[in-house]
Amino acid sequence: MIIYQPLINNLSHFQSLKRLIDADLSEPYSVYVYRYFLNRWPELTFLAFDSESETSDEPIGCVICKSELHRGRRMRGYIGMLAVQSDYRGRGIAKSLVKKAIEKMHQDGCDEIMLETEVENVAALNLYENMGFIRMKRMFRYYLNEGDAFKLILPLTQRSCVRTTFLDDVNGIDIL
């Protein structure tokens, strides 16, 4: 059985998370990227474990997110990383992880969820677009490995559909 858990205050999986994600990255992330996400938004990282596996305490999938006030006006959730170990793919694990993360960010008052993914990453594009994300823009040679990327957004509230310039300031929210 696949079990899903938030990371909160449990940094013991740090190395295995890093390994899981590094395996699929053409350009590596430094330890600081992981620290940046995991230390500040541990509640927005979700892990998947296979309770029946011999290494049931090793995560086999994870999604790493953050949420911040965008230009002082809009609460934006951001999916930074997502990976499922290759032998566990195609079983809906990524979908469940992403759902959990979005639910949490929704509860926390996000107006939208944003992420970037490579134009060539059909699996990720299908996954997100089937959840309602749309491509907002294309970015030329966004990745160090030279591929273009799409910026995807999932609007959760009407505030996502108004240019920040025309939104009221969000007073009293200071998440930094």
Binding site: M136, C161, V162, F166
Partner: peptide, 12 residues
């Protein structure tokens, strides 16, 4: 929401 987001650049 999806349509309104798509038309965001023109919203104003």
């Amino acid at each position: 929401l999806l349509l309104e987001l798509r038309l965001k650049p023109f919203s104003s």
